[in-house]
Design a binder for these strands. Structure first.
Length: 826
RNA sequence: GCCGGGAUGGCGAAAUCGGUAUACGCAGCGGACUUAAAAUCCGCCGGUUUAAACCUUGUGGGUUCGAUUCCCACUCCCGGCACCA
């Protein structure tokens, strides 16, 4: 019996027994199962997690927040979908395999089991029937299917590209695995290597991805929208052709400032540019150029990170011809020019571009001023810095005297007519490199046949199963799978002749780019998702995760959603209606909590010591969910005391004793507090103010504790209301006490209290009185006090009197329920 | 360099259509209960001060009867992007 107060000892919330019991009850009755035909759906999801093993309290925050919402919306009568899954492919499993000789699958499954246990111990209400694992063939079958569809539509292609290569590890590294130009694992220098890779043509969706950000403005945080906008990086300008002197060749540049075309004094080309070899073939500076290229390509990574100041380059020995003036334009090879953006070649306008200015100054190149500032045209003899704003064109032939804004479209039109240029829109966004020379990922469903070329695996043969019989996971310069004969050798689906499977696997961002579509129909073996299910559950209503995914996952996620939408698989073009960025939890050292830093507090251990509900309340009370927070055990005591008091209220309720009659005014006050608390908690949940919601429940409890008559109707009503409000925050204790209170239905299905606006009005309230902006008194006045009455009462108040007496009152201000203010002449 | 977020008691934080700054909690102090301690309950708790008064939301200005809230300038901290022509 939990409800006996033994020998005067104040009882505490016996979390171990209660939480176990409640969790069993939830599980037996399958309370979190998704509805098969939702009328009023609500889909909440936290961002996909990598199963790293032990969850720490930092991870917990996210789960607890989303669970709170799921439970809240359930109580509000929505059909909630709150699923869980695991982003189970990826490098760490492989690293563990190499290090500890354990199969990546085993390692991954063991970790997932561990995390599952922790999540269950916190009482997160998932429908475990819908759980997905990206390393499950039934899941990656559809990852592969999406790949085939992209291939079919020309949105997946192979191309050679320079990739990060660690010589020591003999492997390709993703950008985020390169830290300051060094390999994240072995610390040795990373070089570039040209390899054939698979890409998704996300750039084809760039404009769409950009345009639809408009639709997300209401539901997504502004910083994410901005980050995506910058990442997509649309810029309008023109491509202009420059012919190569003495050769039948031309180079095209991209510029956003065609109005500065007359100011071109040199041109610069990226060292990696594909045409360099051809252009310098008979230059007398061939040797220097080749040396420079070799040097800059090798050290690209380090340079990118360290140099912003120094620009280097080498004269190619070749000149271009200015398309308008016919003048010689020397061509330089410069590593400040990016090969991956625009055309890999730029026109140099030192007078009007800061970078070109630096370069020209260093190499003593000419500067030609062709844009004048609109205001103060004090002619300086030599330029001290580039003038990069729009202005008035000068020395620009027939366009001289025009404003940049009007000249730009006219110049583009002119270039088009002369067939030496055209308008052009460029994006910073690059095509998405999706192949990895790695084992632990979804196999790329493609066969390479010597006679038929690249042949997609027929849909009926999906999934292409990742083989388990691998002995050595150490990459040897190519994918591990290339060495698995039984896997790699296959007959061509077209001609039946001997062929090879693609040895690469897909980037894990591909796995996580569509997972939200799978939950509503996780077991469907015929389709990615049944269209009726898609119709009734998609899109996500609330999506919660860290801002660090703003330009990675969230772009891929939107892209694949859009693609599948166009394909007719799903009804929506955006994956998530609302996005919320929860803040990070930092360890006591102030840095982000993580296993590798050793500053994590293990979740399982914490729950074992204090219980799930204390853990939840502590986490939620720590700070508002959007803000970064430093973990501290200090809050635990408060959370524990709070729940212990609730527990004792339960005893008081059960006992139903009347220690003297509560006065009418006390009852009225309690009714008022109850209604105010309902209002506050409801609004706070809607506005992500979980910490203040808890604060107001604490105030409510503080009033209930000393309330005399626990057999009174109002006490019983208030207590029951408290349990309903508390349930999303501390579901175990709420559920248990709800049952003890004689309720038959789960608290989760027992509705959400409504507040009565009438009762929150109190008879009187305290109003501050200011004189010349300084607070001089606080008066208790009737709620419906008239303005005149308020002024006269205020003026009579002792302390106010001394400040206004004998002085001319210039102004009186009355703000109902808040403030009375007098302005007097000094 | 550019973009974004932040700065309020000893600590986590609350209050922004401008209206009694510091709710709630932690820590601390005092008291009740107890042989005692813990737990629990009650009270105090920004600073100078007997009170009155004055000062106080990173800094300096401004608007206003009144500014944590709005405007301008700046400092520091955190995060992201980083030669995108």
């Amino acid at each position: 019996m939990f409800f006996q107060t033994l020998g005067g000892i104040m009882s505490e919330y016996p979390f171990a027994e209660v939480e176990k019991k409640v969790q069993e009850k939830w599980e037996n009755k399958n309370v979190f199962a998704m509805s098969q035909n939702p009328r009023n759906k609500y889909y909440v999801l936290e961002m996909f997690a990598y199963p790293s093993g032990d969850l720490h309290v930092g991870h917990l925050r996210n789960y607890v927040i989303v669970d709170l919402l799921a439970r809240y919306y359930s109580q509000r009568g929505f059909d909630v979908l709150h699923p869980v899954g695991w982003d189970a492919f990826g490098l760490p499993a492989e690293e563990a395999a190499i290090k500890n000789k354990i199969h990546p699958r085993k390692w991954t499954e063991a970790n997932i089991e561990k995390s599952r246990k922790t999540l269950k111990s916190i009482g997160i209400g998932y429908d475990w029937e819908t759980e997905i694992l990206t390393c499950d063939p039934e899941y990656y079958k559809w990852t592969q299917w999406i790949f085939l569809k992209l291939l079919e539509k020309g949105l997946a292609y192979q191309d050679t590209s320079l990739v990060n290569w660690c010589i020591k590890c003999q492997t390709v590294l993703a950008n985020e695995q390169v830290e300051n130009g060094k390999c994240w694992r072995c610390g040795s220098e990373v070089t570039k290597r040209e390899l054939k890779q698979w890409f998704f043509r996300i750039t084809q969706y760039a404009q769409d991805l950009l345009d639809d950000l408009e639709k997300l403005k209401e539901g997504w945080p502004e910083p994410v929208i901005t980050a995506q906008k910058n990442w997509i990086g649309r810029s309008e300008g023109a491509e202009i052709d420059f012919s190569v002197m003495g050769k039948d060749a031309k180079l095209t540049v991209f510029t956003t400032r065609p109005d500065t075309l007359w100011g071109v004094t040199f041109a610069a080309i990226a060292p990696e540019h594909r045409l360099i070899g051809e252009i310098i073939s008979d230059s007398d500076r061939k040797k220097e150029v080749e040396e420079y290229i070799k040097k800059s390509v090798m050290k690209t990574e380090i340079q990118r990170l360290s140099t912003v100041e120094e620009k280097t380059g080498v004269y190619s020995g070749v000149d271009l011809k200015h398309p308008l003036t016919g003048e010689n334009v020397p061509l330089y090879i410069c590593d400040y020019v990016l090969s991956s953006y625009g055309t890999g070649t730029v026109m140099g306008v030192p007078a009007h571009d800061a970078r070109d200015f630096d370069f020209a100054k260093k190499y003593g190149l000419k500067m030609k001023e062709v844009i004048k500032p609109r205001q103060n045209t004090d002619n300086k003899e030599s330029l001290e810095e580039a003038f990069t704003d729009y202005g008035i064109l000068t020395n620009s032939g027939e366009f001289s005297g025009m404003n940049s804004e009007e000249a730009i479209p006219m110049i583009i039109e002119f270039l088009k007519k002369e067939k030496i240029g055209r308008g052009k829109v460029n994006f910073k966004l690059h095509d998405w490199l999706v192949s990895r020379q790695r084992y632990w990922g979804a196999p790329i469903p493609v066969v390479h046949c010597p006679s038929c070329g690249v042949v997609p695996v027929p849909e009926k043969d999906l999934p292409v199963i990742l083989p388990d019989n691998v002995e050595d996971y150490m990459p040897k310069g190519k994918s591990v799978l290339a060495a698995v004969d039984s896997y790699i050798n296959v007959s061509c689906p077209e001609c039946g002749g001997p062929a090879l499977r693609d040895p690469d696997t897909l980037d894990t961002f591909v796995d996580s780019s569509w997972y939200q579509l799978r939950y509503p129909d996780a077991k469907n073996s015929e389709k990615l998702i049944d269209s009726a299910k898609a119709e009734s559950w998609l899109p996500i209503d609330k999506y919660i995760g860290g801002i660090e995914h703003a330009t990675g996952h969230l772009i891929y996620f939107r892209f694949i959603t859009k693609f599948l939408h166009r394909l007719g698989v799903i009804p929506c073009g955006e994956p998530a209606q609302r996005l919320f960025n929860q803040g990070m939890v930092c360890g006591s050292d102030g840095s982000v909590m993580s296993k590798s830093k050793g500053n994590g507090v293990e979740a399982g251990e914490f729950v074992g010591n204090y219980g799930a509900d204390v853990c939840r309340v502590t986490t939620l009370f720590l700070a508002p969910p959007g803000r970064d927070a430093i973990w501290s055990e200090q809050g635990v005591a408060g959370a524990k005391r709070f729940l212990d008091r609730v527990w004792r209220l339960g005893e008081k309720y059960t006992a139903g004793v009347s220690n003297g009659k509560a006065g009418e005014s006390d009852e009225k006050k309690l009714r008022r507090t109850m209604n105010l608390t309902i209002k506050k908690v409801t609004e706070d949940i809607e506005n992500w103010g979980f910490n203040t919601a808890i604060a107001s429940m604490m105030e409510f409890v503080n009033e209930l504790v000393p309330f005399e008559d626990s057999s009174s109707y109002i006490f019983r009503e208030a207590y029951e209301t408290l349990l309903l409000l508390l349930a999303p925050f501390a579901p175990h204790i709420a559920e248990y006490l709800w049952e003890k209170a004689g309720k038959n239905e789960f608290v989760l299905k027992s509705g959400w209290p409504q507040y009565d606006p009438e009762t929150v009005i109190s008879e009187s309230e305290e109003i501050g009185v200011q004189v010349n902006g300084k607070l001089r008194a606080v008066l208790r006045l009737p709620f419906d006090v008239t303005e005149d009455e308020a002024f006269s009462q205020a003026a009579e108040s002792q302390n106010v009197k001394q400040y206004i007496e004998g002085r001319e009152i210039k102004k009186r201000i009355f703000v109902p329920h808040r403030m009375i203010s007098f302005v007097v002449k000094a």
